[in-house]
Design a binder for these strands. Structure first.
Length: 442
DNA sequence: TAGCCGTGGCG
DNA sequence: TCGCCAAGGCT
């Protein structure tokens, strides 16, 4: 067993890794050429996202937005639509903001210096290094999760790779490892090694091009490195949503709304829903009875106070869990009837009596949900919503969305075909597909 | 620094 | 079912 110096190890590492990479590298759409725009788009899409997932999105995106200019001038909703289902939607918004920066600051030509690239919206240390090295072959490290794992194992480093300071340290180390003139392939090879061989769970050391001098393997620690502190568990939220069916001119359509321009799922469309206080939700959700009147009342009240709409929850539709990185949504969906007159709370007050309200005269024998609707109408007349205690969330400012065309269209009745143009997060995509399918069968 | 920000696959 | 993980960045 030969002992190599640190410099000899680095030298050997580069040679073996590059030879291996040229032999096994995958044929990926963004490796067709070194067009910096394509590299940029691919690197943004690949953030926290698997290669197999990205491939079809990348091809569709490049077809629709083949140049920086086309992307910069596109409506944001079209960009989000192309990102639908990929997640982390601020990436798409930042990418387009970056494209606009390229148009304004660089005459539509992709910047070529490290500082200019790093200044683009949504481009951090990793993505900057990836673009500079892959597109321009500049010797700048691109340290992602793969590289941190691969390098931590090779040198048997005990640093916690969840800490930002560790990434800085590894960047300095990797920078000294880049073979002369080979930055483009070396950086990609490091990531390829992490993706194909030096995997998190069960590294395939026998196929590794640098196994002879990998300290983790020599010490039998390849399964315990790298060190990574655990992520916090996602908090649980119980939510009630409504599929409000339109009537009259909106017959056959469903009520959707656009989320605010900031925060979770920014700018995306959704079915209206509201957070339910934990204590109550625990009891109500565990009941055998799906159609809990209190839950129907909660979403009806939300639509009333938030959007001035009166709706009548009619029946339970389905329950659906959805897990984000940091939140778990336990959702219950109700089908609801919309009021044909689009009666507002204010107008309800002006009617002055139950008899003149479209929600009056409901046959209380039909279901307890209709009692809810009747109760809501009565609340409207009294001006004291009795289900307010259920709703555990401050109203979101849906009027603050800069993408809206007017102050009144945060809500919209849409037909199934309208979903082709509006971006929805996967959760609501699934529910709406299930809903349209149920209508088709009925 | 730590929390926010999606989604799907896998053991 | 559960936890971890995947070519991170922003605040």
């Amino acid at each position: 067993m030969t002992q190599l110096s640190l410099e000899q190890k680095k030298e050997m590492y580069g040679q073996n890794l590059l030879e291996w990479y040229h032999h096994i590298q995958r044929d990926l759409p963004w490796r067709k050429n070194h067009d910096p725009y394509r590299i940029w788009v691919s690197e943004i899409m690949l953030q926290q996202t698997r290669v197999d997932t990205v491939i079809p999105y990348f091809n569709a995106f490049i077809s629709k937005f083949p140049t920086v200019k086309v992307l910069a001038e596109a409506p944001e909703e079209e960009v989000l639509k192309c990102w639908e289902g990929l997640g982390y939607y601020s990436r798409a918004r930042n990418l387009q903001a970056g494209a606009k920066m390229v148009m304004e600051l660089h005459h539509g030509q992709m910047p070529t210096t490290k500082e200019e690239v790093a200044a683009l919206k949504g481009v951090g240390p990793y993505t900057c290094g990836a673009i500079m090295s892959i597109a321009y072959n500049e010797p700048i490290p691109a340290v992602d999760g793969n590289v941190m794992r691969v390098i931590s194992r090779f040198f048997a480093l005990d640093d916690d790779i969840a800490k930002p300071s560790t990434r800085i340290k590894l960047e300095k180390l990797v920078e000294t490892m880049i073979p002369q003139g080979q930055a483009r392939y070396f950086n990609q090879a490091l990531m390829e090694l992490g993706a194909l061989i030096c995997t998190p769970k069960s590294p395939n050391c026998l196929l590794c091009p640098v196994m002879e001098h990998c300290e983790a393997r020599l010490q039998g620690r390849e399964h315990e490195l790298p060190i990574k502190s655990k992520a916090k568990k996602a908090r649980v939220e119980y939510r009630v949503a409504a599929i409000v069916e339109g009537q009259g001119e909106h017959a056959g359509k469903v009520l959707v709304r656009q989320r605010p321009a900031e925060g979770l799922l920014a700018g995306m469309w959704e079915l209206p829903h509201v957070l339910v206080a934990d204590e109550q939700a625990a009891v109500l959700y565990e009941s055998e009875l799906k159609e809990q009147p209190e839950l129907g009342r909660a979403i009806a009240e939300e639509l009333h106070t938030q959007h001035g709409l009166l709706v009548r929850p009619r029946q339970w539709f389905c329950d659906q869990d959805h897990i984000f990185s940091h939140i778990r949504w336990n959702m219950r969906f109700f089908i609801a009837d919309s009021d044909p007159e689009q009666l507002t709370r204010l107008e309800a007050l002006e009617f002055g009596s139950n008899e003149s309200s479209p929600l009056a005269g409901i046959n209380a024998d039909e279901s307890n949900l209709q009692e809810v609707a009747a109760g809501l109408a009565a609340d409207g007349l009294k001006g004291t919503p009795s289900s307010a205690a259920l709703v555990a969330e401050k109203p979101m400012d849906y009027t603050a969305n800069e993408n809206r065309q007017s102050s009144k269209n945060e809500l919209r009745f849409i037909a199934q075909k309208d979903m082709d143009s509006l971006p929805f997060p996967n959760l609501f995509l699934k529910i709406l597909q299930k809903y349209w399918q149920s209508k088709g069968e009925a």
